[in-house]
């Protein structure tokens, strides 16, 4: 491949053109009788396997529509880009004339103008994983606040409503992080005997989670519980076991590697599921809408009044075997996933 880079310019053009034509030919879909929809998928960050799994799952789900005689063509754009780069994704989708756009957005507010243009071009826009403020788009995914409340409630119950705890959060200033903080604070506020000694940030990074847990353990010897977000919980648990603190309970996460440790070491933990399948749920909602169905009254919730929330399972030690079965034989980084079925998504419609 390398020497071809230095071909004279004319051959290079040919090469680029040939490559382009070849890819178009390869992806040319087989003809089906049913309706056809083109759906743009924009993912603005590739720093986590969760995102890869999200795209793999939605790709599978789109293929599965073939069995229903509906042809769904996905156009996937996935790269670590800034907001302006992701706006370019959306703009290209508009220029291409897709029917709908599914987006995992890099900003809650910056897409308002471009979503307005998408709507003017009659394109349905659904954000997932992070809510957007645009009235011209909607959100399908978990309620991050409720996500935090579920595991916080488990922690409060497990501690018998009293004890000293710390919280380890993700990225300060990130909207989902803020909603989660609001969520657990609300739960723990109901228990006057639960004291939050410290709230630290470890940027959704396992190594930082582990380091932060170590520091917190050294600072607060009387700790009873830890509320830690996913992406850092495995690290925090490593620090707990290194320190031999088997009397401390902490929340966990949904990756296969952690579930195995949980099972092997018989940890006292629980994990709220933020499933990579949220984009599949969004796809199903999009297709119902694209086939002309109208939303029922009152399905939209959330601070922007444009959110459809999907159920949030909580994995506990009791349900751990089922979770383990789901990720059996899959790579260590695989997350437990759930998604609405086509019919469940249909329940939001008249």
């Amino acid at each position: 491949m390398m020497p071809k880079l230095f071909l004279p310019k004319r051959s290079l053009t040919k090469l680029v053109l040939a490559a382009a034509l070849a890819t178009t030919a390869l992806t040319a879909p087989a003809a089906l009788a049913g309706p056809k929809f083109v759906i743009g998928v924009s993912n603005g960050w590739i720093g986590s396997e969760w995102r890869t799994q999200m795209i793999d799952e939605v790709t599978e789900a789109a293929k599965a529509y073939g069995a229903r005689d509906i042809q769904v063509e996905l156009v996937v754009q996935s790269a670590t880009v800034d907001v302006q780069g992701q706006i370019a994704h959306v703009r290209n989708f508009i220029n291409q004339g897709v029917n709908a756009i599914l987006i995992n957005p890099n900003s809650p507010t910056a897409f308002n103008p471009i979503f307005k243009q998408a709507k003017a071009a009659n394109i349905l826009v659904i954000a997932t994983d992070a809510e957007v403020s645009s009235p011209d788009a909607m959100y399908v995914g978990v309620d991050q606040k409720a996500w935090a409340q579920k595991s916080a409630q488990w922690l409060a119950d497990t501690l018998g409503g009293k004890g000293n705890i710390v919280a380890i959060n993700g990225l300060a200033g990130h909207p989902a992080n803020q909603m989660r903080v609001d969520g657990y604070r609300e739960v723990f506020a109901k228990y006057p005997d639960i004291k939050i000694l410290n709230e630290a940030n470890a940027n959704w990074d396992q190594a930082q989670g582990q380091q932060t847990m170590k520091t917190l353990l050294a600072t607060f010897p009387t700790l009873n519980g830890v509320w830690v977000q996913d992406g850092m919980a495995a690290g925090a648990w490593r620090a707990l076991s290194e320190a031999g603190k088997s009397n401390i309970v902490a929340t966990g996460e949904i990756r296969a590697s952690f579930l195995k440790t949980w099972s092997d070491a018989k940890l006292t933990t629980a994990a709220s599921v933020n499933p990579p399948g949220v984009m599949v749920s969004a796809l199903h909602v999009a297709l119902h809408r694209l086939q002309g169905k109208e939303f029922k009254d009152g399905v939209f919730k959330g601070q922007y009044g444009n959110a459809i929330y999907v159920p949030i399972p909580l994995i506990t030690t009791a349900s751990l075997p089922d979770a383990l079965k789901q990720v059996q034989g899959k790579p260590d980084y695989t997350s437990v996933t759930t998604a609405l079925t086509v019919d469940e998504a249909g329940a939001f419609f008249k």
Binding site: V81, G85, A110, N112
Partner: peptide
Amino acid sequence: ETATGDPLLGGSY
């Protein structure tokens, strides 16, 4: 283009 402020907007430029 974005009608909003973002303290991390410029980094990649």
